[in-house]
Design a protein around this nucleic acid. Structure first.
Lengths: 182, 182
DNA sequence: GTCTATAAGGCGATAGAC
DNA sequence: GTCTATCGCCTTATAGAC
């Protein structure tokens, strides 16, 4: 793994754990085993590094879409997506949803990183909307928002209460809700 | 309004808008019209100020509970609570739910402010649980988590997409869900 | 092309003046 | 009891050495 790649991976993890504001470039460099201060050779500013982290989450979501293509029905695909938050529930209970908590923090920062974070969330909502549309629902957009909001809200409560089981039970509930839709 | 009170009010607003990490004590002092650096006379540390902000949110929620006592049924009380996020949807679309986004940020900070934030959220979930219990539901805790998660998730998406209507339509949806419970 | 030394600025916090 | 001047630290970013 190249140095630039290692920096993005380290930044992703540290930002998920500590947030953008608290994560220093020195800490990212150390975690990535790169000389401190040298980060600027790969990224002109800290924001550019955060931008690369967001792009990495977007890529990870697109990779997941390939896995999802295996499932035959929209319902099965939606449930597989939702289950991915359950699978990482211990991590979610500790630091929240990586994308959701990052989007929430960047919303309060100035600059336009918040728009990039919104675009990643839009990928998820937009894909879910497509699945509901395949089910013939004219309110597909609202259903997609409901789905993603349920996941994000559960992740927020799960991390606030440090309760991984809350994430689990809410994901199960969302799965039943998906099954109830025709 | 005394200086201490003004400081807490200014801190609440600035933290909601910019987050804890980015909000400086100098900015809080200026907004509260208090000499800069003088904040330390009223609060020994920055964390103590944030703690006072959390206590102020807790007090505001308890004040709302008095209003809620007017409603006759658990359903009516729950819907009135949920509608309060709809009423401040323009603010939510800009900076998210004040309590939810604060809890999310503090979760990533060290110290035990995150536990205080969790306690405020627990007040809300615990109260909702009581309402569902009055409806005779044995799964009252899970229903309460579902309710608060739906609100918090909607607030997160609403602010990420800067879409106040998303908050509105999701609140309406939650109201219909409350009505469907017996 | 890769890395290091250092600068510039801003922050929370303190000590002590009024 | 109230406020001000200032310290010391940390962080991003740059200039220039290897």
């Amino acid at each position: 793994m190249g140095k630039r790649e290692r920096l993005v991976a380290s930044a992703s993890e540290l930002i998920h754990r500590n947030g953008v504001a608290t994560t220093t470039l020195a800490a990212v460099a150390q975690a990535a085993d790169v000389p401190p201060g040298n980060v600027y050779y790969y990224f002109k500013t800290k924001n550019e590094l955060v931008s690369a982290v967001l792009a990495s989450w977007a890529a990870q979501f697109e990779a997941m879409l390939d896995t999802l293509a295996d499932a035959d029905t929209p319902q099965a695909r939606l449930k597989t997506l939702v289950r991915s938050w359950d699978e990482m529930r211990e991590l979610v209970a500790q630091h929240g949803c990586p994308i959701g908590s990052l989007a929430a923090e960047l919303d309060k920062a100035d600059g336009d990183l918040d728009r990039e974070a919104a675009r990643v969330l839009e990928m998820v909502v937009g894909w879910a909307e497509g699945q509901f549309a395949q089910l013939g629902r004219s309110d597909a957009r609202e259903l997609a928002a409901t789905l993603v909001a349920a996941v994000q809200g559960a992740a927020l409560l799960s991390s606030a209460f440090r309760d991984a089981e809350l994430m689990r039970s809410q994901v199960r509930r969302i799965e039943r809700w998906i099954d109830s839709i025709d």
